[in-house]
Amino acid sequence: MNTDAVTEPVATAASGVARPTVAVLDYGSGNVHSVLRGLEHAGAAVSLTADAEQVLAADGLVVPGVGAYGSVMRALAASGGTRWIGRRVAGGRPVLGICVGHQVLFDAGVEHGERTEGMGEWPGVVEQLPADVLPHMGWSTVRPPEDSVLFRGVEDERFYFVHSYAVLDWEFDQTIAAMRPPQVTWAHHGADFVAAVENGPLSATQFHPEKSGEAGLRLLRNWVETL
């Protein structure tokens, strides 16, 4: 791990009120500085870390991700990230996935004919969008459920997407759900696709909230306030 990239968490805000601690998982996913800054603006005490103790102890864990599904999944597994994410979710400890960090939470991803098994937290396969123009790059509206916590106050705003792959079909068997079924937010580019999921302690967005201006910062603040 590049220790120069670590932002040490700050225990209290200027008001003296303790801030929630958020660990951003450092597994080599690329530039995460905008994620760190966005979470800090949202009121969290943030650290970029690959240390198991910090990852498991933080109030919230953010899993960023850029690049190919298969390479991200392999890097997560090699770093111990998949195990730590699973332990946090099993213990009801909040996790937020972003972009490919959202995608790997599903059953599998298929890119260039290669199928890679994902974490299987949610049903669905990440596949190429059936759109004339790829990647889907730019600002798009989303369709969140009425009682969404993540999108509270930004239901009608646009968010920034950069991707060519997404989950197009959601089939969740509510008859076997022990708790409230996940809340799914949709967007459209060539076809409808899953733009975000809220599922108890586990949430994720296909778009980049840290690059989505004031709307994205509000969404991050909504998540931090649940910690």
Score class of each variant (00 low, 15 high):
residue 8 E to V: 12
residue 101 G to P: 05
residue 206 Q to P: 12
residue 78 A to N: 14
residue 13 A to E: 12
residue 206 Q to G: 10
residue 147 D to S: 09
residue 93 R to E: 13
residue 30 G to C: 14
residue 136 H to I: 00
residue 131 A to I: 07
residue 56 L to C: 05
residue 62 V to I: 14
residue 6 V to F: 13
residue 19 R to W: 07
residue 200 G to F: 12
residue 26 D to C: 02
residue 47 S to N: 06
residue 178 A to Y: 05
residue 7 T to F: 10
residue 122 W to R: 01
residue 186 W to Q: 04
residue 191 A to M: 01
residue 12 T to S: 10
residue 132 D to T: 13
residue 75 A to Y: 02
residue 90 A to I: 04
residue 225 E to S: 15
residue 191 A to Y: 06
residue 162 V to W: 07
residue 56 L to V: 08
residue 209 P to W: 04
residue 157 E to F: 06
residue 161 F to N: 00
residue 153 G to A: 08
residue 218 R to M: 07
residue 114 E to F: 11
residue 81 G to F: 12
residue 123 P to G: 10
residue 75 A to R: 15
residue 65 G to R: 13
residue 210 E to A: 05
residue 51 D to E: 14
residue 141 T to F: 04
residue 97 G to I: 09
residue 80 G to Q: 10
residue 52 A to K: 13
residue 39 L to D: 08
residue 208 H to E: 07
residue 222 N to T: 08
residue 57 A to L: 03
residue 23 A to N: 07
residue 187 A to L: 03
residue 59 D to V: 01
residue 83 R to M: 12
residue 138 G to P: 00
residue 92 G to P: 13
residue 83 R to C: 05
residue 219 L to W: 04
residue 46 V to C: 10
residue 173 D to V: 01
residue 105 L to T: 06
residue 25 L to A: 14
residue 125 V to M: 02
residue 225 E to V: 00
residue 107 D to K: 10
residue 52 A to G: 03
residue 216 G to I: 07
residue 191 A to H: 11
residue 219 L to Q: 05
residue 143 R to N: 11
residue 223 W to R: 03
residue 35 V to A: 14
residue 115 R to C: 05
residue 4 D to E: 09
residue 125 V to Y: 01
residue 127 E to I: 08
residue 217 L to A: 11
residue 225 E to L: 01
residue 56 L to K: 02
residue 165 Y to D: 07
residue 104 V to Q: 11
residue 181 P to D: 09
residue 68 A to D: 14
residue 26 D to N: 09
residue 134 L to P: 13
residue 197 V to S: 08
residue 162 V to Y: 12
residue 204 A to Q: 02
residue 177 A to W: 05
residue 107 D to N: 09
residue 84 W to Y: 01
residue 161 F to E: 00
residue 34 S to F: 08
residue 164 S to E: 08
residue 111 E to N: 03
residue 208 H to A: 06
residue 175 T to F: 02
